[in-house]
Simulated scan of single mutants.
Amino acid sequence: MNQSLTIDNEQATVGVITKGGCITSYRLKTNDGFFDVLKSFGQRNKASFPLIPYSNRIKNGCFVFEGKKYQLPLNFGDHPHSIHGVGWQEEWSVKNHEEDSITLELTHDGTVWPFPFKATQTVKLSGADLYNEIQLTNLSTTSMPAGLGMHPYFPRHGTAILTADVGEVWKTDDTCLPLEKISCPPNWNLTSGAMVDELHCDNQFDPWTGTALINWPDKSASVTLTSSEDLNRLVVYAPRDEEFFCIEPTSHITDAFNFAFQGRPQQETGIRILEPEETWTVWMELLPKHHL
């Protein structure tokens, strides 16, 4: 049963639901009311959700690992690939709810994803700053391939400028599968700061140093996103004519399991192999500033 939870202090408030383990809102308290750092989107009221145990797409929902072929459900309408793992579509349980933090837990039985696992997610407020951590533990008796990430949605608030230290980006086909990595073209030069309205992209920048800055000059506000060392690739989804955009810290390239099967090295794919009972932890932090 889907539950709605809240953490709140004098500077900010955060909403979480157990369906999908989603953050539903993250708002600063201002003299004029509230300022939305994240934007809710979609039927499940998602402002951010965990990417477990992989991010982005697996081609046709099919991959081979240690000589065995696996077929995943196609889990996103008529899209031809499996997308974003299983955590965002399953019911999490509440492990802990304190004044400044919420911890959710998901135990997956190895049906949709063919390896059983346990995931734990913590959402914590410290003043106005939001910390989001996810842990993944392999409950299988065999090794398990894995990738992790987060999928936050940000409002445009009029003009938004994205700055991130990246130099290369993956060109994709019309289903967002990677084709080749190229130097960032001038319109995707995030290093110098790019207008989000002009990006029109759904692409992965690789590698990334783990820090990105969003400026909203129309609102005299900004937020810095930082992430753990393993989340060293950045997906930027900036669709045309929408009020939101996404910057997603991820650990691996899109369709990484199939790239690994083709012999690409781990350093290139970002795939992590978890042994039985091994736990992997990653995090993202949002550090906002707003001139009240």
Results as ranks from 00 to 15, higher is better:
Leu5Asp: 06
Ile7Gln: 03
Asp8Ser: 07
Glu10Ala: 15
Ala12Pro: 01
Val16Phe: 05
Val16Cys: 04
Ile17Glu: 08
Thr18Pro: 01
Cys22Lys: 10
Cys22Ala: 10
Ser25Gly: 12
Tyr26Thr: 03
Arg27Asn: 06
Leu28Pro: 00
Lys29Phe: 04
Asp36Pro: 02
Asp36Asn: 13
Asp36Met: 10
Asp36Tyr: 05
Val37Gly: 00
Leu38Tyr: 04
Lys39Glu: 15
Gly42Gln: 12
Ser48Arg: 03
Tyr54Ser: 04
Ser55Arg: 07
Asn56Ile: 04
Ile58Thr: 03
Asn60Lys: 11
Leu72Asn: 00
Pro73Lys: 09
Leu74Pro: 00
Phe76Lys: 03
His79Glu: 14
His81Gln: 06
His84Trp: 12
His84Leu: 14
His84Thr: 03
Gln89Cys: 08
Trp92Ser: 02
Val94Thr: 10
Asn96Gly: 02
Leu104Glu: 07
Glu105Asp: 07
Glu105Tyr: 03
Thr107Arg: 12
Asp109Lys: 01
Trp113Thr: 01
Pro114Leu: 10
Thr120Tyr: 12
Gln121Ile: 09
Leu125Val: 01
Tyr131Phe: 13
Asn132Trp: 15
Thr137Ile: 10
Met144Gly: 01
Pro145Tyr: 10
Gly149Met: 10
Gly149Asp: 07
Met150Leu: 14
Phe154Ser: 01
Pro155Trp: 08
Arg156Phe: 11
Gly158Cys: 12
Thr159Asp: 11
Ile161Thr: 05
Ala164Asp: 08
Ala164Trp: 13
Val169Lys: 06
Trp170Lys: 03
Trp170Ile: 02
Trp170Glu: 01
Lys171Arg: 11
Lys171Tyr: 11
Lys171Ser: 11
Thr172Phe: 13
Asp173Cys: 03
Cys176His: 06
Ile182Gln: 15
Ser183Gln: 14
Pro186Gln: 13
Asn187Lys: 11
Ser192Asn: 14
Ser192Asp: 15
Ser192Thr: 12
Met195Cys: 09
Val196Thr: 03
Glu198Gln: 15
His200Pro: 00
Asp202Met: 04
Asp202Ala: 11
Asp202Leu: 08
Gln204Ala: 13
Thr209His: 15
Asn215Thr: 06
Asp218Phe: 05
Ser222Met: 14
Val223Tyr: 05
Leu225Asn: 00
Thr226Gly: 03
Arg233Tyr: 09
His252Phe: 08
Ile253Ala: 06
Asp255Arg: 10
Asn258Glu: 12
Ala260His: 07
Ala260Phe: 13
Arg264His: 14
Thr269Met: 15
Gly270Tyr: 12
Leu274Thr: 00
Thr279His: 11
Thr281Leu: 14
Val282Asn: 05
Lys289Leu: 13
His291Gly: 01
Leu292Asp: 08
